[in-house]
Simulated scan of single mutants.
Amino acid sequence: MRVVIAEDSAILRDGLAQLLALRGVEVAAAVGDADALHSAVAEHRPDAAVIDIRLPPSQTDEGLRAAVAIRRETPDVGVLIFSQYVETRFAADLLAESSAGVGYLLKERVVDIDEFVDALSRVAAGGTALDPDVVTQLLGAGRRTSALDLLTPREREVLELMAEGRTNAGIAAVLVVSERAVEKHVANVFAKLGLPPSETGHRRVLAVLRYLRHVGS
């Protein structure tokens, strides 16, 4: 797996690069601003980019805006936002750009680098990796959509766990129910959102995006 890192703090940038390299991840470039990020992605075409939200010069939302542009211009490159902030409006824009290959993790909640690498691998492979707090805030902000109101509390829990990138077995373990029960809830979510089977197989991600795309509108 080859990645590009965009982090304005030199210490955090170099530290993350070293930690990933120790676990067999090829860090093609580690940069400190959005312009350098665009150049690095164009040059190296990595499997994924790890991006902080607040990058120079304004230290506001350059990272997220760059991530949205990267997903639009190079949809085959996975994008993992790695920040201490939850920015719902631009995060929804990012998630609406594509049905797969997107992640959003909070720095203070990552306590195991191996789990981080696993999340990064899922994003690079076209999956999702969303922190539960991010999912909660995004879903909360998007509750104006009528489809959300159709879900039962349990189906909403299943949807949130799907957004974190968990398998049916993983969801069953968290909720302490059988996989068969989870399969039923997932099927209900798909049905209520009008997501029939397709060749792309991205219904799990689309189920989440159906809500998040309305956030900030």
Results as ranks from 00 to 15, higher is better:
1 M>H: 08
1 M>I: 07
1 M>F: 05
2 R>V: 04
6 A>M: 05
6 A>G: 06
8 D>N: 01
14 D>E: 13
15 G>R: 07
15 G>L: 03
17 A>K: 06
20 L>C: 06
24 G>D: 05
25 V>C: 00
27 V>Q: 02
30 A>K: 00
32 G>V: 01
32 G>Y: 00
33 D>Y: 03
33 D>K: 01
33 D>C: 07
34 A>M: 00
38 H>A: 13
40 A>H: 05
41 V>F: 00
42 A>Y: 05
44 H>N: 02
46 P>N: 00
46 P>K: 00
47 D>V: 02
48 A>E: 00
49 A>F: 00
50 V>T: 02
52 D>H: 01
53 I>H: 01
54 R>N: 12
55 L>V: 02
58 S>R: 15
58 S>N: 14
58 S>F: 14
58 S>M: 11
58 S>G: 08
59 Q>S: 14
59 Q>M: 15
62 E>Q: 10
63 G>M: 05
64 L>N: 09
65 R>D: 15
67 A>G: 10
70 I>T: 10
71 R>A: 14
71 R>V: 12
71 R>Y: 08
74 T>Y: 13
75 P>T: 12
76 D>G: 13
80 L>C: 12
83 S>R: 10
84 Q>H: 12
85 Y>S: 13
90 F>A: 14
91 A>E: 11
94 L>N: 08
96 A>M: 13
96 A>H: 11
96 A>L: 03
99 S>D: 15
100 A>D: 15
100 A>S: 15
103 G>T: 05
104 Y>T: 06
108 E>D: 14
108 E>G: 02
109 R>E: 08
109 R>V: 12
111 V>W: 11
113 I>H: 12
113 I>F: 15
116 F>P: 01
118 D>T: 11
118 D>A: 15
119 A>Y: 06
119 A>R: 06
121 S>N: 11
122 R>I: 07
122 R>L: 07
126 G>D: 05
128 T>N: 11
128 T>W: 15
130 L>F: 15
130 L>C: 02
130 L>P: 01
132 P>M: 04
134 V>T: 04
136 T>A: 15
136 T>F: 10
136 T>S: 14
137 Q>M: 13
138 L>S: 03
139 L>E: 03
139 L>H: 09
141 A>G: 05
143 R>N: 10
147 A>S: 09
147 A>L: 09
147 A>T: 11
148 L>D: 07
150 L>S: 09
151 L>Q: 04
151 L>G: 04
154 R>A: 10
156 R>I: 09
160 E>L: 06
160 E>H: 07
161 L>G: 07
162 M>R: 06
164 E>Y: 02
165 G>A: 05
166 R>A: 08
166 R>T: 09
166 R>K: 13
166 R>S: 13
167 T>C: 09
169 A>Y: 04
170 G>M: 02
171 I>K: 00
172 A>M: 05
178 S>I: 06
179 E>L: 04
179 E>R: 06
181 A>Y: 06
181 A>M: 06
184 K>Q: 13
184 K>H: 13
184 K>F: 12
185 H>V: 08
186 V>N: 02
186 V>S: 00
188 N>E: 10
192 K>V: 03
192 K>Q: 07
193 L>Y: 12
197 P>R: 15
200 T>W: 13
202 H>N: 15
204 R>S: 11
205 V>G: 14
205 V>S: 14
207 A>W: 03
208 V>F: 12
209 L>V: 15
211 Y>F: 10
211 Y>S: 14
211 Y>W: 09
214 H>L: 09
217 S>E: 13
